[in-house]
Simulated assay, not measured.
Amino acid sequence: MARTTPPRPLEVETLFPEVAGCRKTAVRLHPRLGDPSARDSSLGGPVLWPISEPWPHCDDDHPRTAFSPPGEGPIPLVPVLQLFAADVPDLAFPSGTDLLQVLWCPFDHEDGYVPCPEIHWRDGSLDDLRPADPPRPTGAHNDYLPDPCVLHPERVTDYPNWDLPDEVADALEARFEELEEETGWSYWYHLSVSDGVKIGGYPTWTQEPDWPACPACSVRMEHLLTISSSEFDGGSWRTWLPIEDTPATGTIWDLPYEQRTKIQSPPGLMLGDMGGIYLFECVSCPDRPFAYRSDCS
């Protein structure tokens, strides 16, 4: 079943033409529990892997937290996201590739105290790709091990919230407040940045932005994707809850907890107390350098 974000309740660019130049396209992936194969785009599902390439491991030192490895030695990474170009045509794949894979170490790292991700761009037509059978890391917490989900990609429009230029935010502050008082709709929560796991658009920051610069050329990196703890939260659900998941009566918060969490947080991830991990890349450099950031609510 497709997932459809409701139309915004108000015409953003009519009310606030100042934000029109900041418009970006995002692709909400809408993961839902399922049984994807290794040849499907998925979150937390099985992935293809070259026969000739050893499964990657993490050799980093890990801080002592509740999500620390129970012992010593290299830790096998876990598959997080696999995307085929045919399913996300809005994503600019490097030349000669049509498959993006995201893996991470499922233990806290010093940088953000969240899992440490890595990305792989591949040619999905290569003959040596086979369904992987990676070892499972011992002692990893379920919060960092996504449950297998099928994806329902949907193009949406993003407008910046935390990333709105200061001069624009200052000029619009009074009008934003007036709109919320008159209609109950908040630009920041309901009209700007889309929630959930997504490609492109703006990061769904829960704290102040922290854009990385490319270590090679010093240019600010582009947002590649967001892996979020939830599809929506208590402040944003009215505009980011898909139409197909909207209860016939009452609201999403009237559903039993287990039923609601299958809609709100299908992969079962909890990153920094309902936060997210944001992946960035430099599209100016031929080797597409990669970086990540994280935050919590």
Rank of each mutant, 00 (worst) to 15 (best):
F107I: 08
S218E: 10
E72C: 06
W253K: 04
R8A: 10
P54M: 08
T204G: 14
Q207A: 15
D60V: 02
D123P: 06
F232P: 02
P115G: 09
E180V: 10
L255N: 04
G44Q: 03
A86W: 07
E13Q: 13
S37P: 00
P267C: 11
I277K: 11
G268Q: 07
P203T: 12
W185V: 13
D123V: 02
L126P: 00
S42T: 08
L279M: 13
R260W: 14
Y189W: 11
L81I: 03
T4V: 12
S125G: 11
L279S: 03
P134D: 10
W162I: 05
D87G: 05
V19F: 10
L225C: 14
H30F: 15
H190W: 04
E167Y: 08
R288K: 14
E258P: 01
A92V: 13
E167R: 12
D123G: 08
R28V: 15
A171N: 07
V19Y: 00
H30P: 12
T206F: 14
L103V: 09
P215N: 09
A38D: 02
T25S: 13
P286F: 06
I227Y: 11
P148H: 02
S297H: 15
R288V: 10
E231H: 12
G73N: 02
E72L: 07
W121A: 08
R220F: 12
Q82Y: 01
L99P: 08
L269D: 07
R220D: 12
F280R: 05
P70D: 07
R220Y: 10
A216P: 00
I199V: 14
P69M: 01
V27A: 11
R175I: 00
E208F: 10
Y113C: 14
S294A: 15
V78E: 00
D123Q: 03
G34N: 11
P137Q: 06
W104F: 12
V219G: 08
P79V: 05
L29V: 10
S192E: 07
A174E: 15
S186E: 06
S218K: 15
P134R: 14
E18P: 06
